[in-house]
């Protein structure tokens, strides 16, 4: 392998008129020096098939001037930094090269700076304000730039990537009541912006309610008769990541309702004869309990819907 590298390197150098002669006299290149031939220089050594996957991605479209391989682009060195010193040292030192990964020499902030050089004004425009930046998370902890298909851009695999760190949410995926993430019909980015956001919890919408009603538009209202927490924040009653109770509720009804409402005239207390232990069942407790009557819990547009019963 080493011999092959040397032969290839020699071939590259020989391709530049007078290069081998000049090399005798040249001082050590600074780390800011770029390679002589861009990607062709890099590929002379870095010829692993796994790295070539990038040539089938949006990062390597020669017709796209916005990308690193577009006309005038810095190719590999757009992301990895100037490689002149690295080439001159025959790969024995990184020089100006930025390596990526958890165990890389470059700290996450330096790695990220390479990505943000292009994306800070686009997809990652809110990166600096986000929690991932604050936790020193590297872009490549989630993204695989050389893969033909970056797993984090596929809904089903994205969930696995995110829950690699967010483990409590990994467990939530199997709860009895949940969103369809396990089936790949939604992904974490359906609601959250992992690249940062100025919204609460890095949500894609301006608020919790706006995010939820992006899909559940029927609860947007405004209704004639409204339920105050519905208009304020869906997460007052629901846990979007999953619940052991039906309908993503934070705790089961009727007790959830009774965290805010004292049931005057509603003998829904467990230790009354109407409870399941006490003989005859009660519509206050069984079935949908409170919702057996107050079914329009998200709001009602019926003129007689004051108690959300119509």
């Amino acid at each position: 392998m080493g011999t092959a590298v040397l032969v290839l390197l020699a071939a590259v150098l020989a391709a530049v008129p007078g290069a081998s002669a000049r090399a005798q006299d040249e001082a050590v290149l600074p780390d800011t020096a770029y390679s002589q031939s861009g990607a062709d220089t890099c590929l002379a050594c870095h010829d692993q098939p796994a790295l070539a996957g990038i040539f089938r991605t949006a990062h390597a479209r020669p017709g796209d001037p916005r990308g690193p391989f577009g006309h005038g682009g810095l190719q590999c060195e757009a992301c990895h930094g100037p490689g002149g010193a690295h080439v001159q040292a025959k790969g024995r030192r990184l020089g100006g090269i930025v390596d990526f990964g958890v165990k890389a020499n470059a700290p996450p902030a330096r790695q990220n700076a390479m990505c943000l050089g292009c994306h800070a004004a686009g997809a990652a425009r809110d990166w600096a304000a986000g929690a991932h930046a604050g936790s020193d998370i590297g872009c490549v902890q989630c993204h695989q730039m050389h893969a033909v298909e970056d797993p984090v851009r596929t809904p089903l695999l994205q969930v696995m990537v995110c829950t690699g760190c967010h483990q409590a949410q990994r467990a939530d995926l199997d709860k009895p009541s949940r969103h369809p993430l396990r089936e790949g019909k939604m992904s974490c980015t359906s609601c959250h912006s992992p690249h940062g956001s100025t919204a609460h919890a890095q949500l894609t919408g301006n608020s919790v309610s706006e995010t939820c009603t992006g899909c559940h538009a029927e609860f947007r209202g405004p209704f004639l008769w409204e339920h105050q927490p519905v208009m304020e924040d869906c997460s007052v009653c629901h846990d979007a990541h999953g619940s052991v109770q039906p309908a993503l509720l934070k705790t089961r009804t009727p007790f959830l309702c009774q965290q805010c409402h004292e049931g005057a005239g509603h003998p829904s207390v467990a230790s009354t004869p109407q409870n399941p232990n006490g003989g005859q069942g009660s519509a206050y407790v069984l079935g949908a309990n409170c919702l057996n009557c107050h079914s329009q819990i998200h709001g009602s547009n019926h003129p007689a819907g004051r108690a959300l019963m119509r």
């Binding site: 002589q36 031939s37 861009g38 990607a39 062709d40 590929l43 002379a44 070539a52 040539f55 390597a60 020669p62 391989f69 190719q75």
Partner: peptide, 9 residues
């Protein structure tokens, strides 16, 4: 001069 002639587009 960066022709990317070796790039497997």
């Amino acid at each position: 001069g960066w022709t990317c002639s070796q790039c497997p587009f």
